[in-house]
């Protein structure tokens, strides 16, 4: 028991060192104030202890200069911390443009992971080191949270929308990931391992069990659900042409535009009338309940494979849903 007694988590991602540096700075600042104030209290208590029964304290009522000082100095310190932590947060929130996509579906009480080329795994996530990885997270039921302590990142996995999380592993190794949002009876069993591998090992692993790629699973689903009867490649269909639409701005009926990213495509499948493309009738039925979250991810991968503008998703950040208005009840 005692030979497995870590007091500090491993640092295994590109942001881990930055988060830890801020942590140590905060420890130093907090330690300084906690010790200084405690010692002052002890010193006052000893020095000004009551020496005879009738003694009273000095007639001191306050000092505006001191009040300003001890409001302004802590304010300046916390604003400094605010700026630094915000810089880290923005970095954690914005996946680099060259991030590699992996799709994760959480459900009570397991994690299902799909790689774009079709390799699937459960409660295991293989990633290469030295390569930013962007996870697109979806939930089949309640809120979960994907948390990798060694990478210092986590994001809630919220039903009804996609969230994203990115990291770049820096050291090969096996690291725990946990569900960090309470999700029911076996919440604490919803854990697994990230396997960070050298790029060569990762390629070998990927080749070891590749099945049908996500996009081709998506294409099959696209046909099974008869999406192709309206969304035709020749602009004669009743729905918008999907070729080349991914990552591009789309004009909306009633004005405004939206980037056709993962979230918008997902919304358009489960709640098609929330934001209809300009020039089309709001006639598409909802596919809510007809497609699983994995199916939705496959459909998105398929639409993505229909050609892009060469721009990865310009969603400003994970884990955000800024571009997606919350699904509104109809």
């Amino acid at each position: 028991m005692f030979n497995n007694f870590p007091l500090f988590p491993r640092e295994a991602s590109s942001v881990a060192g930055q988060v830890d540096a801020l942590y140590f700075l905060l420890l130093a600042i907090s330690g300084f104030f906690a010790v200084t104030i405690s010692l002052t209290i002890v010193a006052f208590a000893v020095k000004y202890r009551r020496r005879h029964a009738l003694e009273v304290g000095a007639k001191i009522h306050g000092s505006t200069a001191l009040e300003i000082l001890w409001s302004a100095v802590p304010l300046a310190i916390v604003m400094g911390i605010f700026v630094w932590s915000s810089v880290i947060f923005i970095r954690i929130s914005r996946p680099p443009r060259d991030a590699m996509d992996i799709y994760v579906v959480g459900k009570q009480w397991m994690w299902k992971i799909q790689h774009p080329d079709g390799r699937r795994e459960i409660n295991e996530l293989h990633v290469p080191v030295g390569q930013p990885v962007r996870l697109t997270l979806a939930s089949e039921d309640v809120i979960h949270d994907f948390f990798v302590p060694a990478f210092r990142v986590k994001a809630d996995v919220v039903p009804g929308r996609f969230t994203t999380l990115w990291f770049e592993a820096t050291k090969p190794g096996r690291y725990h990931f946990f569900c960090a949002q309470y999700c029911g009876t076996e919440h604490s069993g919803m854990i697994g391992w990230v396997d960070a591998m050298t790029p060569e090992d990762f390629q070998a692993w990927l080749a070891g069990g590749a099945g049908e790629s996500l996009a081709s699973s998506g294409e099959k689903l696209f046909q099974e659900l008869s999406c192709n009867s309206c969304h035709r490649p020749d602009s004669q269909g009743r729905g918008p042409v999907l070729d080349g639409i991914y990552g591009r701005p789309v004009a909306l009926e009633g004005g405004g535009q939206v980037i056709a990213d993962d979230s918008y495509i997902r919304e358009s499948i489960v709640d098609p009338q929330a934001r209809t493309v300009a020039g089309y009738q709001p006639i598409m039925p909802t596919y809510q309940g007809l497609v699983t979250e994995e199916g939705l991810l496959q459909l998105v991968a398929y639409i993505k494979s229909l050609g892009t503008t060469g721009q990865p998703t310009p969603t400003p950040g994970a884990p955000t849903a800024t571009d997606t208005p919350h699904p509104t009840p109809k």
């Binding site: 905060l26 907090s30 915000s86 880290i88 954690i92 960090a180 949002q181």
Partner: peptide
């Protein structure tokens, strides 16, 4: 003091991502 000062860790959004929950 300890409770209040560790609140600063949690208010630090970039650090909170790690220690949240």
């Amino acid at each position: 003091l300890v409770g209040g000062l560790t609140g600063l860790f949690l208010a630090s959004v970039g650090l909170d991502v790690h220690v949240h929950d």
